[in-house]
């Protein structure tokens, strides 16, 4: 259960991303955080979402939603020149069955984007509220 510490890293990266922005955006509110997550990262998406609910308190992302894009496990077989989508515990070529393959994706654990809104900006349109938890597992 290391998802809470992963969340703390995530929130540090969010703060860092915003700190790099211009002054105009310094008052902005984080509304969404998008990450890519593969099963071979060892991080559980459900646990991460629950941890985020707690970890976001008192941070710039206090009111943000966490959106997780699941990344499939894919391997590349140089012999068959084939990419296969595989389960995390069977990294073998779907054509020839060899385990001498290289991992193409599936160990991802990265911050893709941070969505900001400026509280002093124009009024929002009706119904622009994003889903509390969209596109999750």
């Amino acid at each position: 259960m290391h998802e809470l510490s992963i969340c703390q890293s995530l929130l540090k990266e969010v703060a860092r991303a915003i700190a790099n922005q211009s002054e105009v955006q310094s008052k902005a509110v984080v509304t969404a955080v998008d990450i890519a997550l593969g099963p071979l990262s060892g991080v559980d998406p459900g646990q991460l979402l629950r941890a985020f609910e707690l970890a976001r308190w008192g941070t710039l992302a206090e009111t943000a939603v966490l959106r997780i894009e699941p990344v499939p496990v894919t391997v590349w077989c140089a012999e068959c020149e084939t990419e296969s989508t595989v389960p995390p515990n069977a990294l073998v070529c779907s054509m020839c069955g060899t385990w001498r393959v290289s991992l193409r994706s599936g160990a991802d654990l990265s911050l893709r984007s941070v969505t900001l809104s400026d509280p002093d900006g124009p009024a929002p349109k009706e119904g622009t509220c994003p889903e509390e938890k969209a596109d999750v597992y």
């Binding site: 992963i6 654990l109 984007s113 900001l116 509280p119 929002p124």
Partner: peptide, 24 residues
């Protein structure tokens, strides 16, 4: 609180990033 704050703010803009969460 999250829903309320999201309702109050302006249309969003997005910072594209590609940072590992394990960076630190």
């Amino acid at each position: 609180a999250a829903q309320k704050a999201v309702n109050l703010v302006a249309p969003p803009h997005t910072l594209e990033l590609h940072t590992s969460l394990m960076r630190a």
